[in-house]
Design a binder for these strands. Sequence first.
DNA 1: CTCCTTCATTTACAGTTGTAATCGATTAAT
DNA 2: ATTAATCGATTACAACTGTAAATGAAGGAG
Lengths: 152, 152
Amino acid sequence: MAVEEKVEITDAEWEIMRVVWTLEQATSKEIIEVLQEKKDWKPATTKTFIGRLVKKGMLLAAPQGNKFIYSAGISEEGSVKSATDRLFGQICSRAAGKTIADMISKALLSHEDIQLLQAALDAKKSEAVDTVPCNCIPGQCKCKKEHNINCH
Amino acid sequence: MAVEEKVEITDAEWEIMRVVWTLEQATSKEIIEVLQEKKDWKPATTKTFIGRLVKKGMLLAAPQGNKFIYSAGISEEGSVKSATDRLFGQICSRAAGKTIADMISKALLSHEDIQLLQAALDAKKSEAVDTVPCNCIPGQCKCKKEHNINCH
DNA sequence: CTCCTTCATTTACAGTTGTAATCGATTAAT
DNA sequence: ATTAATCGATTACAACTGTAAATGAAGGAG
């Protein structure tokens, strides 16, 4: 399988990529139109982001006459994974559970999603621990947090 | 309840905040020591971030003699929520379910976490939809994605 | 063949971020 | 008292981001 590159996608770039992932193939005009409506970006702004993404290899530009047809150079799948990895790198490992629970509460989910979630959760039940260690400070835990009294 | 400010916390700032959230009270020396070990940051680097966080009100500096005792000016809870909101603002709404499932698979969870997750999931079961609409492009759905054939 | 339109490319520019040295004031040590 | 160690504040600086105008090249309209 293709090694998923560790790409850093900015907020603005996500918007472009999402359009391209959705349309699979798109001209700059199409992308510009979508984002003019969705984000109220000037055409020049969208062009800048397209250019930067092409330079970084996140967008592929296939010459079509004198124009280009753009397509994704990175997978949505992998990009989403990178983004979640980043989030979980930021927050305290102890906060993961509650954070995921909040996400579930907030998200709009399909029946299929629910099944996926249930399966993932069931798989976890066997390997649950008593206390998740805090990873905010290396070495001996110095947590003062109430919920962390067992954290050492 | 306190209105949770819409704060933007950078990667580096997360590190500082996590130390302070963990210790609850900390001198610059303590913060510097932790991050020197954990991130190999020079003391000056950590000082810069502390200064920026104080200026933004994310860290509170209580004068203690000629030094300061730092404490958090924003809640960990709210900050984590902001970060997850941002993530879900970036990705396609259709990707949420799978993304959360991946998180569950990857996370280290406690028994308590599992219960939270199960409760959140159960609560969702009643309101699951057949198809989550894609929100990448406004207006009529133009999704070319295979999984999106029902998306309109 | 000439002008307008359309793209892509180049340039602009301020604000943010990561990374850090230096400076200035103050305290602790000699 | 003089010196050394701290600590906060100021300054530095390049890369990245968001936002966009200007420019150049090439095709389409007339």
